[in-house]
C-alpha cells in the first residue's frame, strides 16, 4: 500500500507526484492502465478535474480508482463547476472513500473549454475552498451546522512562479498558506534561475513546494506554451534544444529535459519535490523518472528492482 502523502511530505525525502487525465467517456481502461503503471513509481497521483474546462470523467472517480488499486490519490477540486454545497458534499464523499489529499484550484475559465456556453460557478475561490476544508475538519460546515463524522485532508494548492506581474500571485500564495494549504504544486517551470529566485521567497513559508514539470514534446509545443499559456515561460535555449533534436526524436529530447530538471531540483535540494505532468503522455513518466535517477518512492534507480 502507498504511504500517506502527508507523511511523505513531512519525511524530508524527495517527493515525486504525477498526474492522470481521465477519459472523455466512461471507458476507464486506459486510465486504469496509467494508474497501474504509475502508482508504485510516485508518491501520489493527481487526477485532473475537467481540466481546461473540458468535460471528462470526474476527478473523484479517478481518485477512487487509484485508491482501489492501492495508490495514493490527490483529488483535484476546481471551483468552476460546483457551488459550496456540492464541493463540501464531494469532500465528505471523498473522505468516506479513503481519499485524504485534495488540491484546491480556482479552475480554468469556461470559455476556454468544450462547453463554452455553460454557466460558470465560482461560488468559492481556491482560498475559500481551502478554508472550507479546515472548517469541515473543525466539525462544522460552511453554514455553521454540525457535521457527523470527522474529515481530515492534506490540502494543497497551486502557485505560478512565472506569473506577471508576480506580486499579486505571491500575495495570493500567502493567503492560501494562511487558509491552510500544506503543499503547493507549481505551474510548469522551465527557467531554473527564476525558480531559484522563487524558492528563495517561498522557502520561508512552512509549506512544501513541488516544482511543476510539464513534459515538452516538441519545439512547436514549447513555443506555443511560452507564447500562449498564461504563467509559463520556456527559455529560448530549451526551444532551440528541442528544435535541434533529430527528426522523430523531439519527445526523447523532451523526456531528457524533464529528467534533467528533476535531477537538478533534487540535487540542489531546491524544493520538497516535483509534480510531473505529461499531459496525454502518461506512459512516458516512468522514463522521465528513470532518466532522472528517481527509483521507487524516491530511492535511486540503481536501488530499485535489485
Amino acid at each position: 500500500m502507498a504511504r500517506v502523502l502527508r507523511e511523505v511530505l513531512r519525511s524530508g525525502e524527495f517527493v515525486v507526484t504525477s498526474e492522470i487525465g481521465p477519459p472523455k467517456g466512461s471507458d476507464v481502461s486506459k486510465m486504469s492502465h496509467h494508474i497501474e503503471m504509475l502508482k508504485d513509481k510516485v508518491h501520489a497521483l493527481n487526477v485532473t478535474d475537467n481540466q481546461s474546462s473540458v468535460m471528462r470523467y470526474p476527478s473523484l472517480g479517478g481518485a477512487i480508482l487509484i485508491k482501489e488499486r492501492g495508490g495514493e490519490p490527490i483529488l483535484q477540486m476546481t471551483c468552476r463547476d460546483r457551488n459550496r454545497l456540492a464541493l463540501q458534499g464531494d469532500l465528505l464523499f471523498a473522505y468516506s472513500r479513503g481519499i485524504r489529499n485534495v488540491l484546491c484550484l480556482t479552475g480554468d475559465a469556461v470559455p476556454v473549454g468544450d462547453h463554452k456556453t455553460a454557466k460558470s460557478v465560482f461560488d468559492l475561490d481556491s482560498t475559500q475552498l481551502l478554508r472550507a476544508i479546515r472548517t469541515l475538519e473543525s466539525g462544522k460546515d460552511m453554514g455553521g451546522n454540525t457535521i457527523e463524522g470527522k474529515v481530515e485532508f492534506c490540502a494543497g494548492a497551486i502557485v505560478t512562479p512565472e506569473a506577471r506581474p508576480l506580486e499579486p500571485q505571491l500575495m495570493k500564495f500567502e493567503k492560501k498558506v494562511d487558509c491552510g494549504a500544506e503543499f503547493f504544486q507549481t505551474q510548469a517551470i522551465y527557467d531554473m534561475d527564476n525558480f531559484r529566485r522563487f524558492m528563495e521567497y517561498a522557502g520561508r513559508f512552512p509549506v512544501k513546494i513541488l516544482a511543476g514539470i510539464v513534459l515538452l514534446t516538441s519545439a512547436k509545443m514549447a513555443k506555443y506554451m511560452t507564447e500562449n499559456v498564461p504563467g509559463i515561460f520556456v527559455p529560448q535555449t530549451l526551444i532551440d534544444e528541442l528544435a535541434q533534436a533529430p527528426k522523430g526524436q523531439a519527445l526523447k529530447k523532451g523526456i531528457e529535459i524533464a529528467a534533467r530538471m528533476v535531477r537538478a531540483i533534487k540535487e540542489e535540494g531546491l524544493c520538497a519535490g516535483v509534480h510531473i505532468m505529461a499531459i496525454g503522455r502518461e506512459e512516458v513518466v516512468p522514463e522521465i523518472l528513470q532518466a532522472a535517477g528517481i527509483g521507487f518512492n524516491g530511492h535511486k534507480a540503481s536501488d530499485a528492482g535489485t
Partner: peptide, 21 residues
Amino acid sequence: CHKGLLNGPCGGTNNGKCEID
C-alpha cells in the same frame, strides 16, 4: 474579473490580460 474572484488573480492572469480574451 471573469470568474468574479475575491482574493486575487487566478493562474490565468497573463501580463495584465485575462486568459479568456
